[in-house]
Simulated scan of single mutants.
Amino acid sequence: MTAPGRRVLVLGGARSGKSAHAESLLALEESVDYVDTVHRNPEDAEWAERIARHRESRPEHWNVAGDADVAAVLGGGSGAVLLDSVTGWLGTMLDTVGLWSDAPDAEDRIAGEVDRFVGAWAATERLVVAVSDEVGSGLAPAAGERRLFRDALGLLNQRLAASADEVWLVTAGIAQRLR
């Protein structure tokens, strides 16, 4: 059973315009918690510049929640939430649980984190717009880690879409509502 909140999932490829579309869906909201899940590499100046430009494009009245505990944000507070992005969240979680380093309980831990996120998404009473990459439309990655990530994100996107009120696909800056 889903809560009375409104869940909107915005999917698209890299540089498709998905974040801009997600922001437009929240343009009239007075209060927005912006959850930024992008993994930062201090040695990548170009990536840091992209993140800074992305953040600067947000309206000043939005609360930047950083890389907060997504389930906690969805479960509390008031106003709308922009989660940008599910892709970044999953990458960070895979690092955190040690999946890349073959930690003995990593698969169970990531499954628990994903379940916690999906449960909070389904139960939220807030308006939430989540941005995620659609990574399953291209060739299968050759490296095992890349396939694992692609598969995990595809399954997570399916689970989020299952309880979403709206699902959008953005391609070349054009948003198409799927549900």
Rank of each mutant, 00 (worst) to 15 (best):
118 V>H: 02
79 G>I: 12
156 L>I: 03
61 H>E: 02
44 D>Q: 02
66 G>I: 03
141 P>M: 01
75 G>Q: 05
49 E>I: 01
57 S>G: 15
102 D>Y: 15
77 G>K: 09
128 V>P: 07
118 V>R: 01
60 E>R: 15
108 D>G: 14
50 R>T: 00
158 Q>M: 08
132 S>T: 10
41 N>T: 04
138 G>V: 05
151 D>A: 02
164 A>G: 05
149 F>C: 05
91 G>F: 12
84 D>G: 02
109 R>A: 11
65 A>K: 15
135 V>D: 05
131 V>I: 09
48 A>D: 13
49 E>F: 04
109 R>Q: 09
44 D>P: 02
51 I>D: 11
159 R>C: 01
123 A>T: 05
46 E>P: 07
62 W>H: 08
124 T>E: 01
64 V>C: 07
86 V>E: 06
81 V>K: 08
52 A>W: 00
58 R>D: 02
57 S>F: 05
108 D>Q: 15
141 P>I: 03
137 S>V: 15
78 S>D: 08
83 L>E: 09
135 V>A: 13
64 V>P: 10
162 A>K: 08
124 T>H: 07
157 N>S: 14
165 D>V: 03
120 A>S: 13
57 S>Q: 14
90 L>S: 03
151 D>P: 01
156 L>A: 01
144 G>I: 02
128 V>E: 06
110 I>K: 03
105 D>Q: 14
47 W>R: 12
76 G>Q: 12
47 W>P: 01
130 A>Q: 06
67 D>A: 15
153 L>V: 03
120 A>F: 12
113 E>Q: 10
146 R>S: 06
164 A>M: 03
137 S>E: 00
127 L>C: 07
163 S>V: 15
108 D>N: 14
165 D>E: 00
70 V>E: 13
68 A>N: 14
96 T>W: 09
159 R>I: 00
80 A>E: 07
136 G>Y: 03
108 D>I: 03
58 R>I: 00
122 A>K: 09
68 A>T: 08
75 G>W: 08
87 T>F: 06
121 W>P: 04
125 E>C: 08
49 E>R: 13
111 A>E: 05
107 E>V: 12
162 A>N: 06
81 V>P: 13
161 A>R: 02
108 D>R: 15
152 A>C: 10
100 W>Y: 09
137 S>F: 10
144 G>M: 13
68 A>W: 11
93 M>N: 00
106 A>T: 06
164 A>Q: 04
76 G>E: 08
96 T>R: 15
63 N>T: 13
149 F>R: 09
108 D>C: 07
76 G>T: 09
128 V>T: 13
70 V>W: 10
63 N>K: 15
86 V>W: 11
113 E>D: 13
52 A>H: 06
68 A>G: 11
160 L>D: 07
100 W>K: 07
121 W>N: 04
62 W>G: 11
66 G>C: 11
44 D>S: 05
161 A>I: 03
92 T>Q: 08
88 G>Q: 08
103 A>M: 04
40 R>F: 14
112 G>H: 02
155 L>V: 02
101 S>I: 02
84 D>F: 01
83 L>G: 11
49 E>L: 09
148 L>I: 00
47 W>H: 07
106 A>N: 05
106 A>W: 06
60 E>Q: 13
79 G>Y: 10
58 R>P: 04
42 P>H: 00
69 D>W: 11
130 A>K: 10
124 T>L: 04
60 E>G: 12
126 R>M: 07
